[in-house]
Simulated scan of single mutants.
Amino acid sequence: MTQKVCNQARRHILKGLGAATLLSPLSSLPAWAVESRRLYIDGLSFLPTDINDVKASKLDAFIADISGIDKIEQADGTINYKRTYQACINSIKQAANSVIANPDVYLQGQTGADINKARAQQQTAVFFQIQGADCVEDDGANNEWPLLDSLHQQGLRVLQLTHHYGNRYAGGALDNNGLKSLNPPLTTAGQSLIEELNRKNILIDVSHSSAQTALDTAKASRSPIVQSHGAARAIVNNARCSPDEVIRAIGDSGGVFGVFMMSFWLTNKPTPTIEDYIRQLGYIAKVGGVNSVAIANDFPLRGQENLLALDNNNSEGIKEYLPWWHRLEEQNVLGFDVEPKHVVIPEFNSIDRMSRIDDALKKARFKSTDRDRFMGENWQRVLKQVLV
């Protein structure tokens, strides 16, 4: 059959399927129809309680934070959420069991090639991530990594170096001890960790790292690095957002920068809009290149649950964040002197966010090839390159 005839046949079948069928779950479509639509990959979310959320999200793959957490109160009264080894080995086993129990929905991602495999089988590939190398802080003696080995064997494929505050390996974005200029680097132990992560083909994530740690990591790593979820400091001047040199270094490494859904780090405007999110994507493209832009979430697949319960009332929803925000303001952490007014962009605090972002990019006149990259192809390229 010629390509022209094949395309005509496909159009005829799609017409016969009808609109109702096309709006139904993807499992009702022929495999080639699923494979021909735009790839959707989310750079950070969580395994949902309701398994139906996975299909409803239309995701072909996502990176899932499966961290187990111990709450640690710091000397200044702020809370750090430490990803201890024991908490994480328990949580990663539970996550693996959940994936195994739902083979019609999930494929646990071991290599980047699993994205296409899952897509062909009308599953969603899920790649396990831990938000902080606290879980392996006891590793590295005599260049041995038993804790990292065990987590990798259980399916760990993406490791974030730190979460807000520093650890043995890396400096955190909020580490400043009241001094705006303090910018902790990657440590000597961190250099060894980077070497081991490269050797094991584990993707390195510099989200929540200090800018200097991110720059040091880009220089030290032989493989692309990513910021799975973040935003541009040039738009919101906050310690949790990344300066241009970090965005550029990630792009130069061959990695990607996922723009997330936490609206108080996307814009300082009193009311966040779809255009604010698209502006962030465009800015990352300008600084890091179109091959560096990606989508992230940092909320559950269906959205920030408390805001959903409040019908996305940002003026009420922001109240849960303010005590933490004000403590950081007292510590003179960069950007926390600007009180936030919102948590989410209401239109994107939805299970259907990927389709809505795609539509917004089209409305903003981004090229179809760039939309392909932003919505999933950039993530797929990096995952294929690193997870082998």
Rank of each mutant, 00 (worst) to 15 (best):
K363F: 13
I318G: 04
I345L: 09
Y321C: 05
G288M: 02
G288R: 00
I284D: 01
L281W: 07
E305S: 12
H326Q: 15
E320C: 03
I345D: 00
V287F: 10
N291A: 13
R353F: 01
K362W: 07
E330T: 08
W324V: 14
E330G: 09
P346F: 06
R279Q: 15
T267H: 07
L266T: 02
V343L: 07
P272C: 02
N268R: 13
H342T: 04
D298K: 00
M354L: 14
R356T: 05
K362S: 15
G335A: 07
H326S: 14
L361W: 09
P323Q: 08
V333H: 07
K362N: 13
I278T: 14
E275W: 07
F264G: 04
R353S: 02
S315E: 15
E320V: 05
M354T: 08
D337W: 08
N332L: 13
G303T: 05
T271M: 09
G303R: 01
Y283L: 10
P300S: 11
I357L: 12
V333I: 09
I318S: 03
D359C: 14
D359W: 03
S292D: 07
P346D: 06
I357G: 10
V343M: 02
R356Y: 05
P300I: 00
E316Y: 05
G288D: 03
A285I: 13
V338M: 07
L308W: 12
I357N: 04
Q280N: 13
Y321E: 03
E316G: 03
A294S: 15
G289E: 12
E305H: 10
M261D: 00
E339N: 09
V287R: 06
V344K: 01
V344Y: 02
K363W: 04
A296F: 01
F348D: 00
E275R: 05
I357T: 07
T271R: 14
F366K: 13
L266S: 02
A296E: 03
P270I: 13
L328P: 03
F348I: 00
F336N: 04
N306A: 12
E347F: 03
E330I: 10
N332H: 12
I345N: 01
R353E: 01
F366W: 15
N268K: 13
L361M: 14
F348E: 00
I274Y: 03
E347A: 10
N313Q: 12
T273Q: 15
G317A: 06
V290K: 15
Q331E: 10
M262N: 09
V290Q: 15
I278Q: 03
Y283W: 14
T267K: 04
G289D: 14
V293T: 11
P323Y: 06
I295N: 00
K286F: 13
